[in-house]
Simulated assay, not measured.
Amino acid sequence: MKKKVLIMTQNFYPVIGSAGNRMKNIYQLLNEFDIEADVLTTEPAYPNKNLYNDKTFWDDEALNKKTKKIIRVPIKNKKFSNHIVSRLYFYIEIMWRFLIKLWQIRKENYDYIMVSTPPIFIVFSALIGKFFLKSKLILEVRDLWPDSLVGVKTFDNSFILKIFRILEKRMYRLADHIVINSKGFESHIRSKLKKNTPIVYLPNGPRAHEVVRSKKYEGKFRVVYTGNLGLAQDIDHLKLIASALQAEGIRFDVIGYGIKTEEFMRYIDEHQLDQVYMHQPTTRKKSLALIENSNIAVAFLNDADVFSTVLPGKIIDYMTCRTPIVAGIKGTAAQIITNNEAGFVFEQQDIQGMIEKIVELKNNPEKLKRIGENCTRTVQDVFLWENNIKELVQIINE
């Protein structure tokens, strides 16, 4: 008899970013591996709901078909805000609507609820729902919360943070299985557990058809950045990189979204950076095409300790496109880049070192090619979804 799984997530197709793509892949591949997977999610709203009025984002016909397998709950908030009260209301609304829907589908006989965090509030609805659905719980952790909240310096109320940490510990302990997308999370989570709860590493990655296996370096030399422009991404250092690349006459393409996007665009205008090209948020397919058409990709993360445990999805996307990485980053992501010779890692403040390395690589196409080959080999050996999903399939079929 097929196992039946309900995936609960705020981020799902066609939502842009690594979280939405991750949950889409898990949903599709579980079904391909003969597990009956359904999804409970919201209407697409990140970074804002109006973005998805553009049919360009709805580019997967198989997922566009009306089906009872994908349950979307409506939300009143039309824009994702960084204001703490507005965001709290947003999360509580999702939690409440998910709880109502879980009650309505309580007779569906799901063997597992797989819930993705952050945000943690969706987990609360899953923890309650698992009892009246009589399901086991797989907790999928994409970020360490509330440490990440502290890391972006948006919240510092010690009393409420203490409550959040108690809730975090409770969340881990009530899970039957835990899935992580970065090995850097494991020791932190283990320190919160009383029992030996199984923890499975399931990294972000490409599907096999997305991997770029050959690439020609022709035309104007280009550097690219893609993804969130938020509090975790160290926008100030990205500004400095943009100015430094301008001074070197190197084209810099940015596909950015998030709360710091307007600030970055103002900086470009004020400093007349005509070598910096801003692109509107777009589909994964078009984003990967832009990365593939670039010679080097850059990445930054806030230097808070919690972000040293993170493996950003963009790092794997860069390697998927055979594009060498120059990053101001540390910890888990830095180890992946360095150990696999997929690029070069610097201290965040070492903008000059990063620029010098970019110029060096610009003048050494053979070295660029070798690093690109390392990127492809690493992705094929370590990060393909078709291979890694088997870990999750094994858990569910036990």
Rank of each mutant, 00 (worst) to 15 (best):
S135W: 03
R106C: 03
K65N: 07
R222D: 02
S158H: 11
I160E: 02
P324I: 00
K369A: 09
E391V: 07
S135G: 03
I122W: 05
L40I: 00
L231P: 08
I16L: 13
I315V: 14
D38Q: 13
T41S: 15
N25T: 11
G151S: 12
K216R: 14
F155M: 06
L238I: 10
H83I: 01
P118G: 04
V73L: 04
G184R: 09
N11E: 07
T282S: 10
S18D: 08
I84L: 10
Q246P: 02
E373D: 14
F383Q: 06
T41Y: 10
K79Y: 11
A342S: 15
W145K: 03
H271L: 11
E341P: 05
Y91D: 11
A244L: 02
Q380Y: 07
A334W: 00
P198K: 13
P312Q: 13
N387C: 03
K192S: 10
I166E: 06
V115M: 01
E248R: 09
I138N: 03
F383P: 02
T261Q: 12
I16F: 11
A247I: 03
K169W: 13
V152H: 04
I241Q: 02
K215V: 00
D350S: 10
K215D: 04
L229S: 02
L63K: 06
F159T: 12
K194Y: 13
E248T: 00
K369H: 13
I178D: 01
L245T: 05
N21Y: 14
N374S: 08
D176K: 07
H177S: 12
I120K: 00
W145M: 04
T378S: 14
V254F: 11
G20Y: 01
K101T: 14
E366N: 15
E186M: 14
F221T: 02
K369D: 15
L273Y: 10
Q272H: 14
F33S: 12
V179L: 11
T67D: 11
R251A: 13
V200T: 15
A327C: 03
F98T: 08
N11I: 00
E347N: 12
Q275S: 12
S18W: 04
I178G: 02
R142M: 08
V254N: 04
I255Y: 01
I396L: 03
F57V: 08
R72Y: 02
V179M: 10
Q272K: 15
R207A: 03
G331H: 03
V223G: 04
M114G: 06
A289N: 11
V211S: 09
D59N: 15
